[in-house]
């Protein structure tokens, strides 16, 4: 399997995720972007894992990333729900309590 193609795919996924995170107004969309970026990282890990037959550390790492992603999604969505209850909006623009 051509390595460069997989790496290009990872880069594309990452950039698409980044674009999503930057531009979308809806909080849930932002979370989707984050998931994409995490997957992009996974793609790279798994791709290089093929060259480590003994340890396959890349796969192990990818597994951990998936787990953390699951945790992150759970917490993130819980926060979104809570924020929505509090501000009556899921629009990230309107949540600017950190404004200096």
């Amino acid at each position: 399997m051509p390595l460069n193609f997989v790496l290009f795919l990872g880069a594309l996924l990452f950039c698409a995720g980044l674009y999503t995170v930057i531009t979308k107004k809806n909080t849930i969309m932002v979370l989707v972007g984050v998931e994409l970026m995490l997957n992009a990282a996974n793609v790279n890990l798994v791709a290089f894992s093929r060259f480590d037959a003994v340890g396959i550390q890349g796969q192990v790492f990818a597994l951990f990333v998936i787990t953390v992603a699951a945790a992150e999604a759970a917490i993130g969505l819980a926060l979104v729900v809570k924020v929505y209850q509090h501000f009556q909006t899921a629009n990230i623009d309107e949540i600017n309590e950190l404004k200096g």
């Binding site: 980044l18 995170v21 930057i22 932002v30 990230i92 600017n96 309590e97 950190l98 404004k99 200096g100």
Partner: peptide
């Protein structure tokens, strides 16, 4: 001056 940069918007931080 620096405070005005802080929009309080998460996405700006990311950018």
């Amino acid at each position: 001056l620096t405070r005005s940069i802080q929009s309080g918007k998460v996405q700006t931080f990311v950018v």
